[in-house]
Design a protein around this nucleic acid. Structure first.
Lengths: 191, 191
DNA sequence: TCCATTTCTTGAACTAGATTAATTTTTTTC
DNA sequence: GAAAAAAATTAATCTAGTTCAAGAAATGGA
């Protein structure tokens, strides 16, 4: 099944019968993006939810100095979208772009509503997904506020060693909230 | 009805019949907290979700310098809990405390599950609540990364002028991620 | 395989915000 | 309504991380 990766993820949280699994196929589509392709451009109105089946995405904004600031990564089994833009149908302050060649399962806003209506237990699935994402976001704010840049780097490295290998260092620096130059200096001290 | 504030909030998102409204009453309890009372202590295992009917709460942690760092506020119509501690039944790294005398509607972990089971449309309600909270959390991360301390203060002031009046300045400084002394300096420049 | 582009490093000068400590103002309590 | 406690201010000194600029290394494409 083309959307097997998504079904596998949903089945971690709720049970699905054949019919429901097919329905999810009907209301979703597979999209392939090449490295550097955009899923969502700056100022575009966001119209879909994206599930990463394979690969890696990043969300970023452009700050007043014209620099890219990465606010989020999404790898296998993560959902990503701009809820602000999607819910309120306003131009996105974030862009979403492929960091690697990436296979995405895309669910359009309307199809998402349709699916929730036809398969109410998906409400539970998305509640649990959001609860996890919100928890992670809260934890991230705690780290930003309690750790220095250097501590944040070491902590991230210890928590996600494989992921650190997958992305360029300047992207990691941006995500962690400091400059690539500063990251170089940290690494020069001790790896 | 003692839990009317909560019912009113839920009805913004999903319809409820008499029976369902009563059921929510059965599985929730009202608690009054006086200013400075704790709803959740540091290292305690969190066992409930809290809905603020009236008043104001804060969540904070103690950083390595022994200082309180506020990670979140909750006022009327906001839910607050430590999902990390609640979901994984681990000691909380956050304390939750009343900033004002506060009336809370408390739903125990088990009753929360029970309610979701008996009234499945509450899955939708909590999904929508979490989606909003997650969006706010994402937006907050964007502000932390793109605005200076001073800009964050002005922005917060413009966005929530009434709320700024409700809390001591040192709490606002902590929430915004800088020292009370720095906040004093900003205010000295221009109000 | 070579050129172009992207990514990473290094060092010097600089700045937003922290720290410390003392003082004043405001709020709370009895 | 006085004393105590909590909150806010001010100023001097300090530091984590930025900025700028230039070069080195790695990667990628034809």
């Amino acid at each position: 099944m083309k959307h097997e990766a998504l079904l596998r993820h949903i089945r971690r949280y709720v049970e699905l019968n054949e019919e429901e699994q097919d329905l999810i196929g009907v209301y979703s589509s597979i999209q392939e993006f090449r490295k550097k392709d955009f899923l969502l451009h700056l100022d575009q109105i966001c119209s879909a939810h994206f599930f990463v089946a394979k690969g890696c995405l990043r969300a970023f904004l452009i700050n007043e100095k014209g620099q890219e600031q990465i606010t989020q990564f999404a790898i296998e089994n993560w959902w990503i979208t701009n809820y602000d833009s999607l819910d309120n149908q306003i131009p996105s302050s974030l862009a979403i772009q492929a960091v690697e060649n990436t296979e995405v399962i895309r669910i359009h806003k309307n199809d998402y509503e349709m699916l929730l209506h036809k398969i109410p237990k998906l409400e539970r699935y998305f509640r649990l997904v959001l609860q996890k994402a919100y928890g992670a976001s809260q934890r991230r704010i705690q780290y930003i506020y309690t750790l220095s840049g250097e501590e944040r780097y070491h902590h991230f490295n210890e928590s996600f060693p494989e992921f650190v290998q997958r992305i360029p260092q300047y992207m990691l620096a941006s995500y962690l909230g400091f400059t690539p130059e500063f990251l170089s200096k940290i690494r020069a001290k001790k790896i």
